[in-house]
Design a protein around this nucleic acid. Structure first.
Lengths: 222, 222
DNA sequence: TAGATTGTTAATCGATTAACAATC
DNA sequence: TAGATTGTTAATCGATTAACAATC
């Protein structure tokens, strides 16, 4: 009826990939990077799926949403597929990221090496605590929250991480939107309301643990 | 054809709730807790769904997997629904949690108040760094990794968080499984292989950012 | 009573799986 | 060539939505 195939690596117009596909894409990318580090040149849809618990058909279908990247009889060349997926996800470029909140968790995230590996650089931190503002953490300057708009405009930052207490999160989000931010990674355990044109991903650590206890209890109960 | 309704609050036998339902349940719970804090007595399926971006029908359907908890014409009583959802998720009891790895991120998680609010207590930390082992962080004792089995058995811990570098994660997971752990929250950016009877939830912070850049780029591209 | 809202069914929509011709 | 593996179609399966009688 309708087809999604094309050669360009850009999504075809006629049916957007399901959100679930995008989250698997990130996992494929991570596996491929491990494979390259281990010296592997190619992999197959079944090889890639196996470790992640997906079927070979699903892996092929997911990738086929965006084009033809495999080689019949051979599989997928890791070094070839990696930049393709990065292009789809938008991590083929460097993204400067702002972080709001320099508490415990914020500082830990500043020290986290995994971001840089995927092209993210936290270039500005904002807080209101006078003992931190003006200093530098992990080489990143801590600005006063009052300077949010100025710094975000000057550094052309489009992505921000909210790492403030739940009660402050919505207010911070509103300021970020007004400052021109297009995507927010929210670590505060609240749902924040945002205009349509701004994307958000929420990470609630307690919720992740809840999901885990559910599985544990379910397995016990039979 | 088949029905899921019952009065008990326990899942009916004939069709397990989709995994997506369980993750929404955690969000409902979080909203309900906010509502209670704001003094609200009841809410409706549309009220609950609205803030979270779900339809009223979906909220009702999700809850109906587990029983009848609403009141026609009135809605859901917050104080009544909260313990029901906690019961389903398994957070109606206290869970002692072990943490492996006392680096930057681990320490930040130890200071995070959100876990305790949902019934999780980190009661034991493990590391191999001689300068940290034997000390206490945020009131929690840091054991040597060699004592893993002993402490986990003694404290009857069933849930663990892996907060070690990617290269060490699988080895740690194997030891945890051997020690009788039933659920693992994995912060290392690798897929870990586990036996069927052990549950895992992975949190990869770089992947969350990737999902965000995809949405941002998509919205730009039109 | 009139208005609000549930739980549930049937209809729709979307995502996954199985199968296989085409390709290397 | 024989074996491996893709991309794609059609079939299956599962999840969401719409609608409405029942209830307060």
């Amino acid at each position: 009826m309708s087809s999604n195939k094309n050669q360009s690596g850009k999504p075809a117009g006629d049916s957007p990939p399901p959100k679930a596909v995008i989250s698997r894409l990130s996992l494929y990318l991570r596996e491929l990077q491990h494979l390259v580090r281990d010296g592997r040149l190619t992999t197959s849809s079944s090889g890639l799926g196996q470790r992640l618990g997906f079927s070979d058909a699903q892996v092929r279908k997911d990738l086929a949403y965006f084009g033809q990247f495999g080689h019949p009889g051979i599989g997928y060349r890791c070094e070839e597929l990696i930049p393709v997926i990065r292009g789809i996800l938008g991590t083929d470029r460097g993204w400067p990221v702002a972080m709001i909140g320099a508490g415990n968790l914020g500082r830990a995230l500043l020290g986290y090496k995994g971001f840089a590996r995927q092209g993210f650089r936290i270039t500005a931190v904002f807080d209101i605590d006078p003992t931190t503002v003006g200093r530098t953490i992990e080489g990143v300057p801590v600005h006063h929250f009052d300077d949010l708009e100025r710094v975000i405009a000057a550094e052309q930052i489009k992505i921000a991480m909210i790492v403030v207490p739940a009660a402050a999160a919505q207010g911070v989000a509103d300021r970020l939107v007004a400052a021109g931010i297009e995507g927010i990674l929210n670590f505060a355990p609240v749902t924040i309301a945002l205009p349509e044109h701004v994307s958000t991903v929420g990470v609630d650590l307690a919720i992740e643990l809840e999901q885990l206890t559910f599985s544990v209890v379910k397995k016990r109960g039979g």
